[in-house]
Lab assay of single mutants.
Amino acid sequence: MDVFMKGLSKAKEGVVAAAEKTKQGVAEAAGKTKEGVLYVGSKTKEGVVHGVATVAEKTKEQVTNVGGAVVTGVTAVAQKTVEGAGSIAAATGFVKKDQLGKNEEGAPQEGILEDMPVDPDNEAYEMPSEEGYQDYEPEA
C-alpha cells in the first residue's frame, strides 16, 4: 500500500510541476504579447503594419512553449490582441483601416495563427491545408 501511495504522490508532483510550467509559459506569452502591443503603439504610420505582424510573430513563438489545451486559448487571445492593436492603430490615425491585415508588401496577414497546427491532446499534428499553395516548377 505504501508503494501505491508513494507512486500516487510522485504522479501528483509531476502534474503540479507540469501545471506550473504551463502557467509560466502562458505568463511569458502574455508578456511578449504586451511587449508587441507597446511596440505597435510606438510606431509611426509606416511601421504600424509591420508592428502588428511582430506582435503576432512574438506571440506565436511563445505559444510553442505552452502545451496542451492552453495553446488553443493563448492563440485565440493573441489573435484578438493583434486585431485590437490594429483597431487602436486605425482609431489613433497611425494607419488607414484599409491597410490593416496586410503586410508591407500588401499581402493579407489573416491566418497567421489560424494555420498553425495545434492539437490540445498532444496526440497528432496535421499540416495546414494546401489550398493556398501553388506547385513550383523550376525553369529549365
Rank of each mutant, 00 (worst) to 15 (best):
M1A: 00
M1D: 00
D2M: 05
V3N: 03
V3P: 00
F4E: 00
M5S: 04
M5Q: 00
M5C: 01
M5P: 00
M5G: 01
M5W: 06
K6S: 03
K6G: 01
K6R: 04
G7E: 11
G7W: 07
G7H: 04
L8A: 01
L8Q: 00
L8T: 00
S9F: 08
S9C: 08
K10H: 05
K10G: 01
A11H: 00
K12W: 13
K12V: 14
K12H: 15
K12G: 04
E13C: 07
E13N: 14
E13I: 02
G14C: 09
G14F: 08
G14R: 07
G14S: 14
V15I: 09
V15F: 11
V15N: 00
V15E: 00
V16R: 10
V16P: 00
A17D: 10
A17R: 08
A17V: 12
A19W: 11
A19H: 06
A19K: 02
E20G: 02
E20K: 02
K21R: 12
K23H: 05
Q24C: 04
Q24G: 03
Q24A: 15
G25D: 04
A27Q: 14
A27F: 10
A29C: 10
A29I: 15
A29Y: 14
A29R: 10
A30Q: 01
A30E: 00
A30C: 04
K32C: 03
T33M: 15
E35G: 04
E35I: 15
E35Y: 12
G36W: 09
G36H: 15
G36I: 13
V37A: 04
V37M: 08
Y39R: 09
V40Q: 00
V40D: 00
V40E: 00
V40A: 05
G41W: 09
G41C: 13
G41M: 13
S42G: 07
K43W: 11
K43T: 05
T44F: 11
K45P: 02
K45W: 15
G47I: 05
G47Q: 12
V49G: 06
H50E: 03
H50F: 12
G51D: 01
G51M: 14
G51Y: 13
V52K: 01
V52R: 01
V52G: 02
A53G: 06
T54S: 10
T54R: 14
T54Q: 10
T54K: 10
V55D: 00
V55S: 01
V55Q: 01
A56E: 01
E57T: 05
E57M: 07
K58V: 13
T59I: 06
T59C: 15
T59R: 02
T59Y: 15
K60S: 07
K60F: 04
E61F: 03
E61C: 07
V63H: 01
T64G: 09
T64S: 06
T64W: 05
N65T: 10
G67F: 02
G68F: 14
A69H: 05
V70N: 01
V70S: 01
V71Q: 09
V71C: 06
T72G: 14
T72V: 11
T72I: 15
T72P: 02
G73M: 12
G73A: 14
G73D: 02
V74Q: 01
V74S: 02
V74P: 01
V74D: 15
V74G: 02
T75A: 06
A76V: 05
V77T: 03
V77I: 14
V77Y: 14
A78M: 13
Q79C: 11
Q79Y: 04
Q79L: 07
T81F: 13
T81G: 06
T81P: 02
T81S: 08
V82T: 04
E83W: 14
G84S: 08
G84A: 15
G84T: 10
G84H: 07
A85Q: 02
A85L: 15
A85I: 11
G86I: 11
G86N: 14
G86W: 15
G86L: 09
G86K: 08
S87Y: 05
S87C: 14
I88E: 03
I88Q: 04
A89P: 06
A89I: 08
A89N: 04
A90L: 13
A91T: 09
A91N: 08
T92F: 08
T92E: 04
T92G: 08
G93I: 09
G93C: 05
F94A: 08
F94H: 14
V95K: 04
K96H: 07
K96R: 07
D98V: 04
Q99V: 11
G101F: 05
N103Y: 06
E104R: 04
E104C: 01
E104Q: 11
E105F: 08
E105L: 07
G106K: 06
G106H: 05
A107H: 09
P108E: 08
P108D: 14
P108C: 10
Q109T: 06
Q109C: 11
Q109H: 09
Q109I: 08
E110D: 06
G111F: 14
G111N: 15
L113T: 07
E114R: 06
E114D: 15
E114C: 12
D115V: 12
D115L: 08
P117W: 10
P117V: 13
V118F: 08
V118Q: 02
P120Q: 11
P120F: 06
D121V: 04
D121H: 13
N122K: 15
E123M: 12
E123I: 03
E123N: 12
A124N: 01
Y125G: 11
Y125K: 09
E126A: 15
M127P: 04
M127S: 04
S129E: 09
E130D: 10
G132F: 12
G132V: 12
Y133M: 11
Y133L: 15
Y133Q: 13
Q134Y: 11
Q134E: 05
Q134P: 15
D135R: 07
Y136G: 04
Y136E: 03
Y136Q: 13
Y136L: 14
E137L: 04
E139H: 08
A140C: 15
A140T: 15
A140N: 09
